[in-house]
Design a protein around this nucleic acid. Structure first.
Lengths: 329, 329
DNA sequence: TTGAAAGCGATACCAC
DNA sequence: GTGGTATCGCTTTCAA
């Protein structure tokens, strides 16, 4: 790796001048600029970002914190962040927190030691104060916040849509599965659906669950059919839970969507690959990631943003676990 | 962020001494060590990794290159890498290459500008020479290599197992789907299966495909059943392709595994969530990631490794797209 | 328009 | 045992 010093010598100028052409700052004569560029080319030089970072006390690195990259909801978000950041020449250091506060703090700490210039966090665990004390800009993703910038989907509306669509398609005895209550996004979905269900004339049953895990969900699904065997419509707390319900329905000989309709949340890639393909309320995960990245970049550039909290719309993805609706309705 | 200078002043010693206690190098009196630690505590000091990196010309960052994190095979690998690296206090910068040589080069370049101390690459695209010229250690993951260290699963054996198991379970007219031929791992699976099929007394049909994409796979699956409608067993090139075959089987009214058996490859998390759950040849992805990380760390520490190429075993995961085998067989 | 030099925050050599 | 200081590679005054 060549250094700026070597380039300077090769070009017969000082390092200051090389720095100027590198950063396009200050005056530099056209001829010397050419000479410097020639030297750069010849030596195949590219600046040491570490040295830059040390001097400027900020790097081109941003930290990305997520609960678990193997959870199928997160890769799309992460990819959105990455693609947008790449456009602006930022690189990503990431950490899986497993919703463990210690890991989270630890990562934040080491990220800062590496001069990350900003942080995007998808975790729901840590007390907000930990973030408030941070000296670098933070954006929350898939998480709401009043004090800090955030990007999330309209869960409330998602819940409403899910309930409306399943009612419109004829379910009369609906099960509403309530996700983990420590997640605001899960609570929102629930509230939205509850609102519509309450003011409609269908029967419904609320089932509380404490995780999004598939194995747990399988047990709950069994439970559900035992306790409420004649349910003919399920609004699941997310696509993984919906998948478990779908399995249990099939296993118990129900036909979908004739006997029972199922709607999930998120639209993870897996959902389209089920059989029958899952109808679901889609969160625009990739776009959310991009949006979070954009917001963070604005913070970094000190652009005051009016919209510190960006809520993205959700959409109903009609696949095969819901009935076709009469065109005239 | 406090600096070493401030700590030194607070403890009434020189920066050299602080550095010694930080790194546990050289002599330092017990009392002064305590004083320094007290100051560190008081100021909540943690060393600036950027400054360290600049001086030592190596960081605690490693670069991770993968084709696409939204492809469900990669998160598990990435997680394995991350978990193992975390144990050794390394952090990860990652990049999605989309198998695009330009992106790949670009990432490698910027990784180096950030003094990454090693690189793990899961891409299959770039000419090996690009890696040979690198001054930092590299480990290939899910990719074979003769000259550079690598970690991969035993695809050949996987192919053999798949063929044996499907034959053992009674398929007589087997379809073997050959994956993208530019992937060594795909070629190996194919070869292994072909070997067993050839020397057995079943009929078989080889179908060539050029990607692992689900949408393409759906078309091929339709094709398959048109051309070879009486096939009663499919060895897919991976789980995504197997999923498409499964869909098409169900859609065409075949029952699984009675009319047709299906075996996939990889055992991505999605596969267990299908209905019926997919039988597949499992690659120990998480463990492969960990192994790659360990191997890289050994390179970094200059430990000469005899085993530069680590091949991990695959296993048959028997779920419900294959028939139960007679216990006495 | 250009160069000399200070300094970013650490480490490590060399004195003492 | 401890401290002074050159150094890592770059940016940015300040003078010339």
């Amino acid at each position: 790796m060549a250094t700026i010093r070597e380039v300077a010598k090769a070009a017969g100028v000082s390092v200051a001048t090389v720095s100027r052409v590198l950063n396009e700052t200050g005056y530099v004569h056209e001829d010397t600029r050419k000479a410097v560029n020639a030297a750069i080319e010849k030596l195949n030089y590219s600046p040491n970002e570490v040295a830059r970072s040390l001097f400027k006390r900020k790097s081109k690195l941003i930290g990305l914190l997520l609960p678990d990259i193997t959870n199928p909801f997160f890769p799309l978000l992460a990819r959105g962040v990455e693609d947008e950041m790449r456009l602006h020449d930022f690189r990503i250091i990431f950490g899986n927190t497993d919703e463990d506060a210690e890991k989270e703090k630890d990562y934040i700490q080491t990220f800062q030691q590496n001069n990350v210039i900003g942080l995007i966090s998808m975790t729901n665990n840590l007390s907000k104060s930990t973030y408030d004390d941070l000296s670098i800009p933070v954006v929350f993703l898939d998480r709401t916040s009043t004090s800090l910038p955030s990007v999330y989907a309209d869960g409330m509306e998602g819940g409403r849509i899910a309930a409306k669509e399943i009612i419109k398609r004829g379910s009369k005895r609906i099960t509403l599965i309530k996700g983990p209550s420590h997640l605001q996004t899960a609570r929102d979905r629930f509230q939205g659906a509850l609102e519509v269900l309450s003011s409609s004339d269908v029967n419904f049953y609320v089932m509380t669950t404490s995780s999004f895990s598939f194995n747990d969900a399988e047990k709950w699904a069994k439970d559900l059919f035992e306790k409420y065997g004649d349910t003919d419509g399920v609004i699941a707390s997310n696509d993984i839970v919906a998948t478990a319900v779908l399995h249990e329905s099939l296993r118990s000989g129900r036909s979908i969507p004739e006997d029972i309709q199922i709607i999930g949340f998120d639209d993870i890639p897996h959902s389209a690959l089920l059989f029958p393909p899952l109808s679901t309320i889609r969160q625009p995960a990739y776009e959310m990631g991009k949006e979070a990245a954009r917001l963070l970049i604005k913070q970094i550039n000190n652009k005051k943003e009016d919209e510190q909290n960006i809520q993205l719309p959700v959409t109903f993805i009609e696949r095969s676990t819901t009935r076709k609706v009469d065109k005239n309705v």
